[in-house]
Design a protein around this nucleic acid. Sequence first.
DNA 1: CGTTGGATTGGCT
DNA 2: GCCAATCCAACGC
Length: 211
Amino acid sequence: MTAVRLPRSFFARSAEEVAPDLLGRVVVRTFPDGSRAAARIVEVEAYGPDDPASHGFRGRTARNAVMFGPPGHLYVYFTYGMHHCMNAVTGRAGEGAAVLLRAAEPLEGADAMAARRARQRLLDLCSGPGRLTQALGVDRRHDGRDLVAGAEIWLEDGPRPEAVATGNRVGVQETSRRWRFWLEGNPFVSRGRPGPPTAKRRAPRVRSTTP
DNA sequence: CGTTGGATTGGCT
DNA sequence: GCCAATCCAACGC
């Protein structure tokens, strides 16, 4: 089986379309020492134009500039003072759309991922957007990298998933777009905190029933 | 120029 | 379940 790198045309579609199509694909990262890391994408979120939840909603800035460039490039941003998140730019140049890679299953280079993460369990290596970037050694230096023609990080074809689930995006109040996509039942999906409409589960209250 | 809070995580109660 | 950590982009004055 020959791994085929995803072409520019793959990314030149709406984020909503590209996002679910990225599930099951493999993200590959190479390092100066010749080693590699690879992981199968199991969870993503789409961020489109005219989308209040998107970094691009208020127009182009220094931080989100890559989002407004041509599709098939990596948009990496820093958040919460300590985490990086990585996206694949989609759509047309000037549009400002991207797909956030939220979780993946380690396939190759798990030992090095564990070292970068300072965590041993396979389930804790790539199961969250911040965890994934740390496991792959991706940070702002990689913002703007070409995923189609670059040599440090790219995306390859992978086994098509069977069951894809959708829901509202994590940390996004808006509920009209169900643009979070993940592999149903896959243990590597992030814990995430879905907002509404997912019913909040209330812990049973302890009641002192003194009749 | 000061303030606010985030496309999160990990540790503690 | 709750919250601190820790930087900085975005926005208001």
